[in-house]
Write a protein that binds this DNA or RNA. Structure first.
Lengths: 151, 151
DNA sequence: CCCGCACCTGAGAATGATTCCTAAAAAAGA
DNA sequence: TCTTTTTTAGGAATCATTCTCAGGTGCGGG
C-alpha cells in the first residue's frame, strides 16, 4: 500500500495546513480508517484505536471523525449526518452535499442521467439506479473552509 | 406536477405488486414525501401526515419509510441507515448499495472517474469531488425482493 | 528550552432519533 | 362475511451521537 504510507506521512502536514493540532489520537484514528477495508463505523474504529491508545474515549473518536470529514481527509460513506432525509423516487437527479454544513441540494442535469456502466461485479448485483453526490463547499462554508466548525 | 399525480395513482398498484397491503397511512406517508421539496426527515413527515391522519404514530412513519425505501418508492437521500460508516479519502471510487440489506460495496471503475460536470449552480458551490452510488439488490436480497425484510 | 494559551481530550451524563413490543384494528382473499 | 395475515398505535426501550467541563497538550514566541 504505497498510498497508505504516503497518506500517513502527509497527515501531519495536512492537519497543520488547516490549523489543526497534530495529536496522536487524531493520527491513530486516521490510521485506523486508512487500515480498514470494510467501511468501519465509529464503534469499530474506537475498538481498533483502543489497541494503540488505550485511554482514548468514544467522544474523541466521534469528534475526530467529524473533524477529518470536514477537512476532507475522511469520507462518510453513508453520509449519515443528523436525521435521515427522504425524497420520492421520481425522476432521477443528483445532489450537492456541503462538507461544512451538510446541506443537501438537488442538482438536475440531464447529461448525468445517461451514465453507462459496465455491469458491475459480475452480475451478482442488480443495479436499479444510481445517484451522484457532488461534495464540496457551499458559498457560506467556503469562506471559513480552513477551520471546520464544531457545528 | 403531472409526475406526482401519476405517482400517486400508481401507488396502490405498486404496493400490491410487491405484496404490501395498501393502507391509508402508507398512502399518506408517500403523499407527504411526494409533496415536499426539502428532503424532509421522519419528524417532518410525521407532522405533515398528522394533519390528514391525526392518529398516526411516529413508529408507523418510521416503519413505512423503511418499507417504501426497500421497495424503491422512496429514496433515503442521506442514506442514514444504521451507524455512520467511514473510509479514507484516497483514490476516488464508487459504491454499490443494497436496498435490501444496506450492505455497501466498493466499485472501482476508472471510466467513472472522469465525469465532467458543467459548473453546477452558478459557481455558488465549490465542487471538490464526487461519488456515485449505484443502488439495487445484492444476490441474496434479490431473491426475496418482492417482500421487504423488517431487517 | 521554557511559557502561555488556545486547542484537545477523557469520562460520563444527556439527548434524541430510531426501534421494539403488544394488543387491537384493518386489509386480503376465499 | 369469516378467517388469516398484515399493519397500526402507543409507549417503553435502545443505542448512536453529542455535550459538558475539568484537566492535558501541541505549538509559536521569547
Amino acid at each position: 500500500m504505497r498510498d497508505q504510507g504516503r497518506a500517513l506521512e502527509a497527515f501531519a502536514g495536512a492537519c497543520r495546513s488547516r490549523g489543526l493540532s497534530v495529536t496522536h489520537q487524531r493520527q491513530a484514528v486516521y490510521e485506523a480508517v486508512l487500515g480498514s477495508r470494510e467501511h468501519p463505523d465509529a464503534e469499530e474504529i474506537f475498538r481498533v484505536v483502543k489497541a494503540s491508545v488505550p485511554t482514548i474515549s468514544r467522544g474523541t473518536v466521534y469528534r475526530t471523525l467529524e473533524t477529518l470529514r470536514q477537512v476532507g481527509l475522511v469520507t462518510d460513506v453513508s453520509r449519515a449526518r443528523g436525521t435521515a432525509r427522504f425524497e420520492a423516487a421520481l425522476e432521477p437527479h443528483h445532489h450537492l452535499v456541503c462538507l461544512g454544513c451538510n446541506k443537501i441540494m438537488d442538482l438536475h442535469d440531464e447529461s448525468l442521467n445517461r451514465l453507462r456502466v459496465a455491469p458491475p461485479v459480475d452480475g451478482a448485483f442488480e443495479v436499479t439506479g444510481y445517484q451522484i453526490q457532488f461534495v464540496g463547499y457551499c458559498r457560506s462554508c467556503r469562506s471559513r473552509k480552513t477551520k471546520p466548525q464544531s457545528r
